[in-house]
Design a protein around this nucleic acid. Sequence first.
DNA 1: CGCAGTTGGATGACATATCAACCACCGGTT
DNA 2: AACCGGTGGTTGATATGTCATCCAACTGCG
Lengths: 156, 156
Amino acid sequence: MPTLAHQPLDAREERAWRSYHEMERELAGRIRRQLNRDTGLSDADYEVLRVLADAPDGILRARELRCEVRWEKSRLSHQIGRMEGRGLVTREDCDEDSRGSVIRITAAGRDVIVTACCEHAKAVRAYLIDRLSPEQLEALADISETVLAGLEADTS
Amino acid sequence: MPTLAHQPLDAREERAWRSYHEMERELAGRIRRQLNRDTGLSDADYEVLRVLADAPDGILRARELRCEVRWEKSRLSHQIGRMEGRGLVTREDCDEDSRGSVIRITAAGRDVIVTACCEHAKAVRAYLIDRLSPEQLEALADISETVLAGLEADTS
DNA sequence: CGCAGTTGGATGACATATCAACCACCGGTT
DNA sequence: AACCGGTGGTTGATATGTCATCCAACTGCG
């Protein structure tokens, strides 16, 4: 009956990972549930609408959108299909490249995202930002950027 | 055409949230893919096996397990069903409470989790821990615990 | 031109998460 | 004993994410 006591993380590392991991789960869950309850949007819906709403004319080629949200092709395709069904976005053919498709946010989509964005910011503030000191907030940003840079550098 | 420029997060807050959020996604994705490739386990499988493997005799009542991983009842039930099908755990009736059920990790499950745990720790180290200074690592733990405490305090 | 490799996107199968019932059992009350 | 609110767990419907595969159109090059 092997135990996991010889796990190759020491106490300090273990504490950091454990607490980070749990925070991530709880925080994401809380924000997701609140978003869904307030606006009926999933996290994925929110991401798509947020990016589209910030694009000129609320239009983006699927490829650009995919690049922004860093999703796989199939995920975006399925997601847009569902959102199209709910009237949040539309899909058109692309002029320059006839393989491509162009996603446009609808008026309804814009309505939802504006309020969702607001509520979302409130949640982020309430659960994360307001709990931390300015120093901690900056430390978190530094940490995140460092880790991200490391991840992007190493494409293994 | 309302823009999102009046979003109620200032530049400092926005940077922290944005970078944290992106790190979370990339880091989780990387670890998940590596775990899956190396061992065939999903994150959910890993969590369940990790908790079970640390329990005395590799046995836990479903209720306890659920409490450890903080899942909904239905999620655990479905998950255990699948894992049972793959021979990673077994499900038995509970003696003390005939509503209850008892989950037991199998030998095969124990084999998988031991190596998975090792690989997982390597990934956590490579992508997170080794990128950060000791001060940053401690700061991350402090931040996470603070945020977690706030989340648990407020059950809205 | 004609071909090969690449890219943009869609599709189907499958694994997973979530939500809302549902059912059986527990415990305490009358 | 009959009841009742609460709990432990399951189930099915539905939404979602992932993977492998497919197809058509682009690109560059001989």
